[in-house]
């Protein structure tokens, strides 16, 4: 039993793309953008960690997730209506960005901590590269474009679109002739993407000390 969990009510549950939801609940504790919270449906099951995906100024906490059919938590979480109860923890974690020049690299719902940062005003000297399979997976794309303009790079591997790099994030990075080596590189997504991108950055001369990753597990 995780003693750090408390019960809260869901204030909204919106399917923003097929199989992808944003749930919201009351913000009881302040957070730093990029932090995570633990979520569980009962004290008997181990909680899972999710990045907060909204700005620190909001009165609510938003969580972005996709439904994993074989999973225990997300199929149930996606069907909880407004007013339904879940268990959550205080925000924690240190995947937080400062004022340094930073490339944020995400795939899929790994966009969550970066959108939280951007939505909280952590915008200066930031470039965001978001990789997805289909065009409807550029979550919060319109808002991000407004904030970052040309520093928002969309990569789509299975569909083509105007202004969209056709290919995976790794292909985009491979094509960059001179990566700024003194910049910070923040990665968020599935383990394999993080490991591949990290290896690629290191092979292009980025010191591993400048690479910080958050992995879904």
């Amino acid at each position: 039993m995780d003693k750090g969990l408390y019960e809260t009510s869901i204030t909204s549950n919106i399917e923003i793309s097929p199989g992808v939801h944003v749930i919201s609940f009351e913000k009881r504790h302040g957070f730093i953008s990029g932090q995570v919270i633990k979520i569980a449906l009962s004290y008997e099951h181990l909680p899972r960690i999710y990045s907060i995906c909204n700005g620190t100024q909001d009165n609510e906490v938003n969580i972005l997730f996709n439904i994993k059919e074989e999973g225990y938590l997300t199929p149930k979480l996606s069907s909880i209506p407004e007013g339904g109860k879940i268990l959550v923890s205080k925000p924690s974690g240190s995947f937080v960005a400062g004022n340094e020049s930073t490339w944020m690299i995400a795939t899929g719902t790994g966009i969550a901590p970066f959108f939280s940062m951007l939505d909280s005003g952590v915008i200066a000297c930031k470039k965001l590269i978001h990789g997805v399979s289909y065009l409807n997976q550029f979550y919060f794309g319109t808002e991000i474009r407004k904030k970052l303009g040309e520093n928002y790079i969309c990569c789509c591997s299975r569909e083509q679109g105007e202004g969209i790099f056709h290919g995976r994030v790794t292909s985009y990075i491979k094509g960059q002739a001179n990566l700024p080596k003194h910049f910070k590189y923040y990665l968020c997504g599935k383990a394999l993407m993080v490991v591949e991108v990290r290896d690629l950055l290191i092979s292009k001369g980025v010191p591993y000390e400048n690479i910080l990753a958050e992995i879904y597990f």
């Binding site: 960690i49 240190s94 995947f95 910080l212 958050e214 992995i215 597990f217």
Partner: peptide, 10 residues
Amino acid sequence: RKNLMPVEVA
């Protein structure tokens, strides 16, 4: 540790 082991951030 964060650079060596991503779990450290959580």
